[in-house]
Nucleic acid binder design. Structure first.
Lengths: 254, 254
DNA sequence: TGTACATCAGTGAACGCGCGTTCACTGATGTAC
DNA sequence: TGTACATCAGTGAACGCGCGTTCACTGATGTAC
């Protein structure tokens, strides 16, 4: 065991792997394995049906042993939710990074495709975070930060590509964005929050259009995943490509 | 009891109420009451947690008695799903009828607002039909017809208001709709199905735009209801009004 | 109109199952001297 | 390096609960003569 090798003694503070006792290693590994098994079960029974006993059974443990790793069923669920948000966040950030920042339209399309690919590959994790809430479960504060990674990435695309102030063709004069109406105030607050989180400035009109396009994307994904397209736009590949292209134009990305 | 009144004997064939025995009346009433109690519980425990025993308990019956009315839990769930789809259908059709057919834009806005009002008033029924599928439950064929009432109503608005062939301003040339690509074929099939269901002709470009707007609407509603807007666009009234107005323009309704 | 029989609603007990969580315990791993 | 003690992972039994569904039954309602 590496931890018993004296030559590694000076890495004792490394959080990665070295310098940890066998116990610590085993604990980290099992914590991960429990979560993975729970994720596997999620795909079969859904979030509401996730059972600690079933997870323990699959791992060859006794159910009470899980309480050494997660204090309750809801905490395990929270861990899964955080992981799912982070998986979307990773996906979206990687997709954005794979396309030059200047080509906003291509970036938008790449990110949309990446989200869809992830959702199709992980439908139950998608449902866990974007579907109906799990009854009786209240998402704790810790889920907020991972949840905001994806919208933040969308905002960054917009900010680095949309020419500030350029109204897209055919824009309805955003009367509801003028003055200090509720939408104008909410949008300003959101823009400020985004700026604080590291995204550059986005004009309010573009921001609201992005939110609309963003909800369109997820509405379309939910319809595809939850079966509202059966018998019409299934498979939805062609509709999806068309829609994200149209929405890119709607947002003002060219 | 009216059924025992000989003066009503000639209404014996009326399916409404007269001429039915006390047994038949009681059965119809209880069938409805069970469904209503189940709907009430849905709002507390969600679809996955709906329990026949709990419903029976609330009605002061023994759980086995419910099997005289619904052969299984899933059949009760199916009844709730059909009711929910019909409630949306009623809502949408009534909203559409309340605005002159010629004013397509106003009709569109009225229908969107009506759907939102229904969803906010009945969040768990919304989740039941547009949220994540209930694990282990497979929706039977009978749900298809009620489910299609709402999209059909949207199509009718479009057909009776969109000037055929008029491309909305700022339209991206629908290259993916040309020829016989997958999207063109799916759209043509959908248009044919709509025509058969009674909706007049809609040009393919407008139809696809309507589908995009339609998914936007439901994406926005799901985000609002399932909590993705907390801390930004909540309350979502202003965003909603703005979005459906923008989408009306996107679809080509003026 | 009155009686005999058939239908059906609702009961209560039971089957067999699963769940989350607690708790006293054992044995292995880690730490301090 | 070796020993004594502390920490911690995992066990197995238990508590108290809930679930869907079946089944033989009783008593009320409906129907045919």
């Amino acid at each position: 065991m590496a931890a018993l090798d004296p030559s590694e003694g000076d890495r004792a503070m490394s959080p990665q792997n070295a310098g940890r006792t066998a116990r610590e290693r085993a604990r980290a590994e099992l914590t991960r394995e429990i979560k993975e098994e729970a994720r596997r079960q999620l795909a079969v029974v859904g979030a509401g049906g996730l059972s600690l006993r079933a997870v323990a059974r699959s791992l060859g443990m006794v159910s009470s042993a899980l309480y050494r790793y997660y204090p309750s069923r809801d905490d395990l669920l929270t861990a899964l939710i955080i992981d799912a948000y982070n998986a979307v966040g990773d996906t979206v950030e990687a997709a954005a990074a794979s396309v030059p920042a200047a080509d906003g339209r291509a970036r938008w399309m790449a990110v949309c495709r990446a989200v869809r690919a992830w959702a199709l590959a992980n439908p139950h994790e998608y449902a866990l975070i974007y579907g109906s809430p799990v009854p009786g479960y209240r998402a704790p504060q810790v889920t907020i930060a991972p949840a905001s990674r994806m919208p933040l990435a969308f905002a960054r695309i917009l900010a680095s590509a949309a020419p500030p102030g350029a109204a897209p063709p055919g824009a309805v004069p955003p009367a509801s964005l003028a003055g200090d109406g509720p939408l104008a105030r909410q949008t300003a607050a959101l823009a400020a929050a985004l700026a604080e989180a590291g995204a550059p400035d986005v004009p309010p009109d573009a921001l609201v259009r992005a939110v609309i396009a963003w909800t369109q994307l997820f509405g379309m994904l939910s319809f595809e995943l939850f079966g509202q397209f059966v018998g019409s736009f299934e498979p939805a590949d062609a509709l999806f490509e068309h829609a994200i292209s149209q929405m890119a134009a709607f947002v003002g990305l060219r």
